[in-house]
């Protein structure tokens, strides 16, 4: 059975391996240069006056395109696995009637399914792990310099780093197999697998991941780290305060909400809204000629604060393990279903 499974999988494994080798070669060739540029930049910059932020911005925007491309690739790989390895695995046999041929060989269909799932699933895991590993390694300097919406904990980047891709790939694969078994035709099975997997990949970061651990809620003084900017309101008689999705002293944190509290502690602006602050923008500390920093000090002295709900960056690995565990458990449950179905219902 091992031979037959390998023979049926051979072509696509070789193709995938070739693509992965090409990707790895490109990343291994450019990785050291990227790391060297990063360490040189970090060594040369100074915190006061802050030239490091400017270096990070410059460094990141210079490499943003390949950064986004490889991250998307890691996110896409599990979907491709589910589509091209999972969905047709059983559906194509049912479609061509070859299941009747192979089920009459001297092996039980439980063993037939077990070997098929094990070998193809293992190939999927290895592919996802290697792809995630090399991309995580290559993009380390960029992850360190990324703006908050593309930092490690940001929903899109999180799924393209560490071990999470392995969990995604395993689930996508077993999902494809299950759908193929139920639908019995390869093409519709592929379409349904893709739709269900995309829905899951949207739902988990939005609805599940924020609640894996209780988020931290804290109040912060205003500083250049959490203030995005000011806008003139009411013809300059007051300013609109807008916050960043960041918290001071915890760079790279995943900020779920960032609200403005007025001096009495009332919420005056939700995430993304401008908070009206009664400070003149035509004269005084918030006048344009006095600069950004003095206005922040003035508004902070008035008693305005940031109230943020967030997950600190050091929860990256606990989150990775938890999410991978959840996907693995789902995949295991679907596998159990597949075995019951192949024994009792399929013919």
């Amino acid at each position: 059975m091992t031979w037959l499974t390998w023979r049926q999988l051979r072509g696509s494994v070789v193709g995938t391996a070739a693509a992965l080798v090409a990707l790895a070669a490109a990343l291994v060739l450019t990785g050291p240069g990227l790391a060297a540029e990063y360490s040189a930049g970090v060594a040369a910059c100074t915190p006061v006056p802050d030239t490091c932020d400017r270096f990070f911005d410059r460094f990141f925007s210079a490499h943003e395109l390949p950064f986004v491309a490889v991250s998307l690739l890691v996110l896409l790989l599990p979907a491709l696995v589910g589509l091209f390895w999972g969905a047709p695995l059983i559906a194509r046999e049912l479609e061509a009637g070859t299941h009747l041929l192979v089920w009459n060989q001297s092996i039980t269909r439980t063993r037939w399914l077990a070997v098929k799932l094990a070998i193809t699933g293992l190939a999927a895991m290895v592919a996802a792990y290697l792809c995630g590993l090399v991309v995580t390694w290559w993009s380390f300097p960029l992850d360190m310099s990324a703006p908050d919406d593309l930092a490690l904990m940001a929903p899109l980047v999180f799924g393209a780093r560490g071990i999470a891709p392995v969990g995604y790939a395993v689930l996508a694969f077993v999902l494809g197999v299950t759908v193929g078994m139920l639908v019995r035709r390869a093409l519709p099975a592929m379409a349904i697998t893709l739709a269900v997997f995309f829905a899951l990949q949207l739902a988990v970061p939005l609805l599940v991941r924020p609640h894996l651990m209780t988020p931290v809620t804290a109040t912060f003084e205003l500083s250049t780290e959490n203030v995005a900017g000011f806008g003139a309101e009411d013809a300059g008689s007051s300013v609109g305060l807008r916050l960043q999705s960041a918290v001071p002293g915890d760079a790279g944190a995943w900020v779920l909400s960032s609200r403005v509290l007025d001096p009495s502690g009332r919420v005056v602006a939700e995430t993304g809204e401008d908070a009206p602050v009664p400070v003149s923008m035509t004269s005084g500390p918030c006048a344009p000629q006095n600069g950004f920093a003095s206005c922040i000090v003035e508004v902070n002295d008035l008693g305005f604060r940031q109230q943020a709900t967030y997950h600190p960056l050091d929860r990256f690995w606990p989150f990775q393990w938890m999410e991978t565990g959840i996907y693995a458990a789902l995949a295991l449950a679907l596998t159990g279903f597949c075995f019951r179905w192949v024994r009792r219902r399929l013919s």
Binding site: W3, L4, V102, Q105, S106
Partner: peptide, 8 residues
């Protein structure tokens, strides 16, 4: 070969 592998 398939037959040989799968049938004792």
């Amino acid at each position: 070969r398939l037959g040989a592998r799968l049938n004792p």
